[in-house]
Design a protein around this nucleic acid. Structure first.
Length: 420
RNA sequence: GUGGCCAUAGCUCAGCUGGUAGAGCGCCUGACUGUGGAUCAGGUGGUCGUGGGUUCGAAUCCCACUGGCCACCCCA
């Protein structure tokens, strides 16, 4: 094999593509329903953008970024996530002057240098939603509600929403201290990874799969929230109940990106395997200011499209085929002109028409029509044309109809109406 | 970055303890000068992931690399 895909990337084509269409169309539909406009940002950004926003100490920055130097000596990075570029665009284009709130969504590829496994590639795709300007728990509820709506729209049902609040810069230090105290007592019982993380990232000890028992009994961040954070969290839960969004609270849910505060949430699918999160997000009230903009509260989430597709397949979600070939036009003898005209007449009625361009025999043409799943085949033949007639074949029943050439379009339209 | 399993035709795989490749499906052609799906017959198709080693001889044994799957780490 001369050339092969880069590890962790995929070619997407054929039947697969209909899953992608389903997700993209659902995302656009739901976005429209909630008043979110699409934003398309570059796939490449200055490396510094991600170091600053995602966090110097995170795994994404430490070891997962595709970074290279361009010919001008600038350090460029293929975006590993979608929020930072949107925030960059927000600041760069002075979105603050457009009034609040502002709602955006994006769809596109992200890149992380990781070992591929089920539900994880180096190039993967996310659809994300961001809401700028509101500090209200109503905004949190909207984002979570929207995420759930979208997942249902895609056809999934075996998922659950998990939420938590990790507080703000005022209350988080106190919680961190409490965790440290708790884990100091158990430091001999936990695994080696946890011992290491005790110093590097104490919050991460909570989602260790080895030491779940200890993590379960650990102090909860929600018990250490300051008055404002507590009220925010309580109101969010109230709103979610009003919206009939079922959720679980999980005090062990802490997310990996540094910029989150207060609300964090994840949506997990039960049929997925080790990488069970199909969506994740939270609030990032300090990020825009930290990145050099004004102080604007914001929040958002991203969904992994590949993971959604795995879930769709696992649940057996029925999808619309991306392409239905309504009519195949076969032609035999010196009749091309008529065949072309019929094809065009049909396309003008929004009918998908595929015409033979191989100059093969009728047999081969019908075989091809069958292979591409044509619903009808119009056979334009010399013999029939002498009587101003074409044959329309129903490819499922095999039944032939002799149709006056002046009524082909009407006949095909009727026939398709019957079938579809 | 770590670990386990794996790599033979377009696809799914067989090939036992070493003797220079096979099946099914697919594809093409014909039976059927102008009627697809079914059947039958014939045909096309692989430097056995790459490189090295052991051997008279390697798809088969050994090593390395690359890639795949799954898991860890972490995340969508």
């Amino acid at each position: 094999m001369k050339y092969a895909r880069i590890k962790g990337t995929n070619d997407i084509y054929g039947d697969e593509i209909s899953y992608w269409y389903t997700i993209e169309e659902s995302a656009k539909k739901v976005a429209k329903l909630y008043g979110y406009g699409e934003i398309r940002t570059p796939i490449i950004e200055p490396t510094e953008l991600f170091i600053r926003s995602v966090g110097e100490e995170t795994d994404i920055v430490q070891k997962e970024m595709y970074t290279f130097e361009d010919k001008g000596g600038r350090s460029i990075t293929l975006r590993p996530e979608g929020t930072a570029p949107v925030v960059r665009a927000f600041i760069e284009n002075s979105f603050v002057n457009k009034g609040f709130p502002q709602r955006y969504f994006y769809i596109g590829p992200m890149f992380r240098y990781e070992r591929p496994q089920k539900g994880r590639q180096r190039q993967f795709h996310q659809v994300g939603f961001e809401l700028f300007g509101s500090e209200s728990p109503l905004a949190d509820a909207e984002i979570i509600h929207l995420a759930v709506k979208l997942i249902k729209e895609i056809g999934l049902s075996k998922f659950k929403v998990v939420i938590n609040s990790i507080g703000c810069e005022k209350c988080r230090p106190k919680y961190r201290d409490a965790l440290k105290q708790y884990y100091a007592k158990h430091i001999d019982e936990v695994c080696d990874d946890c011992k290491r993380r005790y110093d590097t990232n104490i919050l991460r000890l909570l989602d260790c799969k080895v030491d779940m028992e200890i993590a379960n009994k650990a102090p909860k961040s929600t018990d250490y929230l300051c008055g404002e954070c507590k009220e925010h969290y309580e109101n969010l839960k109230k709103h979610l109940k009003m919206l009939d969004v079922e959720f679980e609270e999980d005090h062990k849910l802490v997310r990996g990106l540094d910029y989150y505060n207060r609300t964090v949430f994840e949506i997990r699918h039960e049929l997925l395997g080790a990488q069970s999160a199909i969506a994740g997000g939270g609030r990032y009230d300090k990020l825009i200011e930290m990145m050099g903009g004004q102080s604007v509260p914001a929040l958002g989430f991203a969904m992994g499209m590949e993971r959604l597709i795995i879930a769709m397949k696992a649940e057996g979600v029925k999808i619309e085929p991306a392409l239905v070939n309504h009519v195949y036009i076969a032609h035999v003898g010196d009749v091309v002109e008529t065949a072309l005209k019929i094809a065009e007449d049909l396309r003008r009625q929004n009918i998908t028409v595929v015409m033979d361009v191989m100059d093969r025999g009728l047999r081969a043409q019908l075989k091809h029509a069958d292979r591409i799943g044509a619903l009808l085949t119009v056979i334009v033949g010399e013999n029939e044309l002498a009587e101003d007639i074409v044959i329309v074949k129903d490819m499922e029943s095999g039944e032939d109809s002799r149709v006056d050439i002046n009524f082909v379009v009407d006949f095909v339209l009727d026939k398709l109406n019957e079938i579809l």
